[in-house]
Amino acid sequence: MTFRDLLICFNGLLQRELLRFIHQRSRFFSALVRPLLWLVVFASGFRAALGIAIIEPYETYITYEVYIVPGLCAMIILFNGMQSSLSMVYDREMGSMRVLLISPMPRPFLLLAKLLATSLVSLLQVYGFLLIAWCWGVEAPLWGYLTALPAFLMVAMMLSAIGLFISAKIKQLENFAGVMNFVIFPMFFLSSALYPLWKMREANEWLYWVCAWNPFTHGVELIRFALYQQWHSEALIIVCLVTLVASVLAVTGFQPQQGMGKRSR
């Protein structure tokens, strides 16, 4: 097993994910509808009710639309990450996981390479959304779109690894509705995606602490700061640590028979 073999394998995985993405354009557009509804409808309605004071990394007063764009980017990544991780455990993609797992490459590499490939593809959706948001008048600094790229990727890896871990460990979450109710929505709403944490603290101290402990919050903040070309060391460290721990747990806890045993004997 050489480094070249691993590189070829990863390249093959990435190309396949890209081809699937191209072939499923309708999925791409429908995945954009959700964040756009939040941006265009929800944010417009809330703009009047919720004023955002000057907070880092913003240098001036901002509209609510500007505030929620990083959170909506993270939401796209969250949905994609959970969906692809769930399909990895439950073999929803026409047995493609079987093809992957009979490769002679080390299994931890295969799983992490697949997570990375799907994460890279989900960035295309994020940038598609940012382009529409830009047309809608929500602009970040031009270089910010580039500096946010590694942040998007790291958050995508973190959320996919968490997704793989919980899909493998919690049998009750075998369908997407379960993941949506018990993972995606709590993660999204109990974070700084839709409201700054100090607002949450004013409302409820307990909820504030739940939000502050939510890794998704740190993912959103990492993206928010990177989009405005600023470091957020605390968020960076937390995202890196959570990614590392979740990846190790996901890879060691992965059992293909969990999803396949029910199908064939």
Binding site: R4, D5, C9, Q15, R16, L19, H23, G95, V99
Partner: peptide, 20 residues
């Protein structure tokens, strides 16, 4: 376990890549 949306060649190249 073939990917129906991909061509024959794309399916085969994918398998080849998984074997390095």
């Amino acid at each position: 376990t073939l990917d129906l949306d991909l061509t024959v060649a794309q399916n085969l190249y994918y398998h080849a890549a998984l074997h390095g």
